[in-house]
Design a protein around this nucleic acid. Structure first.
Lengths: 329, 329
DNA sequence: AACTGATGTGTAATCGATTACATGTTTACA
DNA sequence: TGTAAACATGTAATCGATTACACATCAGTT
């Protein structure tokens, strides 16, 4: 492996000069610069990032902490992040917590030892220890999906998105609306979306039967199972619509409904959130909310880069969403 | 940031001893070891990876080069890779070539400067320059999806998978089978799959009308467009079945067919490859081939790790596949 | 002619770890 | 009791870059 010393020797200058030529710092005569660059070209020399980062404390790498690597949402966000970061020559170091809260914290510390310049956290829960861990490391962190106190956060407008969906169903004439949510450990998906549903039902004078409420775990299968038990529990006062807080669970529910011979949307309207590819191509196509995940990723990257340039940024950014009306309603 | 020197000072030993305690190398008395560990715990000290990797030439990071970050196939493979690597404490550095051949080469060199211990390349094409670049860096590289001369490669059995699909359609009585492929720059998807289709048609005495052949670009939209033009071109001798080399293109084609009022599979049978989530939930569900992408990722990681341990491994590994019969045929 | 500021280059310290080598202490066994 | 092997710890070089500081040259100004 050629090092800066080799280049220096070949160009008959000190390595200081080589460094200066490469980084455009300090003075280097045009003559010498050309000589150095030529040799760099020829040898294909590239500076060791480890050495560089040891000295400068910067690595050109941004760490990303994901709850799950294999979801469409994550992928889109990472895609957006990458697109922005690549422009500035940053690389991505990926970690996957597998929904394990402890790992979330572990990875924050681990990324620090790898001298990442910043961290983007796709948050799925909020807890004291996590907040503390974030404040303890002194590199910029940006959260997506949850509002973390004291941490710049990029959040989806979960409340209003869910409220819009609920209102829409009500305006379509539905009075008995079932709901499949997730654990409240996840304040955004589990908390806000359910809160909005309950609020809007109440505001419109509609009563909620607790038999209509199910809790899944984001998977298609859990949507299937929850739909099954909701129907079983609510015999006699079956709902006429279902609001699932994610597309995947909505699609699982649709599978069960189709299996049981329900017609959608006539006998049961279904809505989800996420605008997954599946939602578009399934029959009937699913009414859902598009959160523009890729844009979220881009925005996150942009904000993080601004932090790296020591710009002050706000603590909270709210993203826009769009209701996509399709044939499941 | 606390360093090894701080720990040494606090424990009243030299940093050598601290290093030994942390890495279980050399002798350290139980007494001192405990003292050091306690301080490490308390301070939350974690060694700087940059320093470590500068000295040892190992980073605990594996570079991954992807053609596209946002496809289901890539995601699954990365997921499998990550699962295996995480077990051994390795992290993943992700790069996305956006299907740009030049970037593929660029990233190989870039990853080297970042001192990654190995590289996994999801290859989409084969060319001289790429091979040369791989041979020029002296860290282990493993290719997935294409057979690269001289490079350990993990390949799907594209030929037989496509042959099986074609045979299956023929045995179902189809004689006029259309085909949507991709560029031959991609020897596996573009070359082998088409070759198998042509071979099997021939073997079975069936003639191929060139009007039945389309070339897409992996996207759903291109499947839609190609189906459209195939039908337009082949008026009078329309095919009765379609073999698209990817699920996404098959699904695009199905969309067009449904739009035009064709019944699937009665008026047109459709098959794809990839076993995407979409293929399962679309109506009718799509007959396809499961390549077990996640397992491929795991296997790739495992092979790379074995190379890192200086085990000799074969140059070529072939993966298994499974034909999933569904309702589109 | 003396001084100043811009330009060009080099010396050596530094970042935070690992590790070859040296040195001292115990233990075990002939 | 002598000595080799095992154990325990430290000194200092090293990895490959950046950068503070020093020094030399040269042009322009007074």
């Amino acid at each position: 492996m050629t090092t800066i010393n080799d280049i220096a020797q070949m160009a008959k200058v000190s390595r200081t000069t080589v460094s200066r030529a490469l980084n455009n710092s300090g003075y280097v005569s045009e003559d010498v610069r050309k000589r150095i660059m030529k040799i760099v070209e020829e040898t294909g020399y590239m500076p060791s990032q480890s050495a560089k980062s040891l000295r400068t404390k910067r690595s050109g790498v941004i760490g990303i902490i994901l709850p799950r690597l294999s979801t469409e949402t994550s992928t889109r966000v990472v895609n957006g992040i990458n697109e922005e970061l690549a422009k500035e020559g940053f690389q991505i170091l990926l970690t996957d917590t597998e929904l394990n809260k402890q790992k979330e914290i572990e990875y924050i510390r681990l990324l620090k030892t790898r001298h990442v310049d910043g961290i983007i956290l796709l948050a799925t829960n909020v807890n004291e220890e996590l907040i503390k861990a974030i404040h303890n490391i002194d590199i910029p962190v940006l959260a997506i999906g949850q509002e973390l106190p004291g941490v710049p956060s990029l959040v989806y407008d979960d409340y209003h998105a869910a409220a819009d969906l609920t209102n829409m169903l009500i305006h379509k004439g539905h009075e008995r609306i079932a709901f499949i949510g997730v654990t409240h450990d996840d304040p955004s998906v589990g908390g806000l979306r359910e809160q909005a549903y309950r609020d809007k039902m109440k505001v419109n004078g509609l009563e909620i039967q607790e038999t209509w409420i199910g809790q899944g775990d984001f998977s298609i299968e859990s949507g299937y199972e929850q739909m099954k038990s909701i129907l079983k529990r609510s015999k006699g006062q079956e709902p006429t619509a279902l609001f699932a807080v994610t597309d995947r669970m909505a699609i699982g529910a649709m599978e069960y409904l189709k299996e049981q011979g329900y017609t959608i949307p006539e006998e049961m309207a279904v809505v989800g959130i996420g605008a997954s590819a599946l939602s578009k191509y399934i029959t009937p196509s699913l009414t859902t909310i598009d959160y523009h995940n890729k844009d979220a990723g881009k925005k996150a990257a942009e904000l993080l880069l601004r932090q790296l340039k020591n710009e002050k940024i706000d603590k909270k950014f709210e993203l826009t969403y769009r209701l996509i009306m399709r044939n499941s309603v």
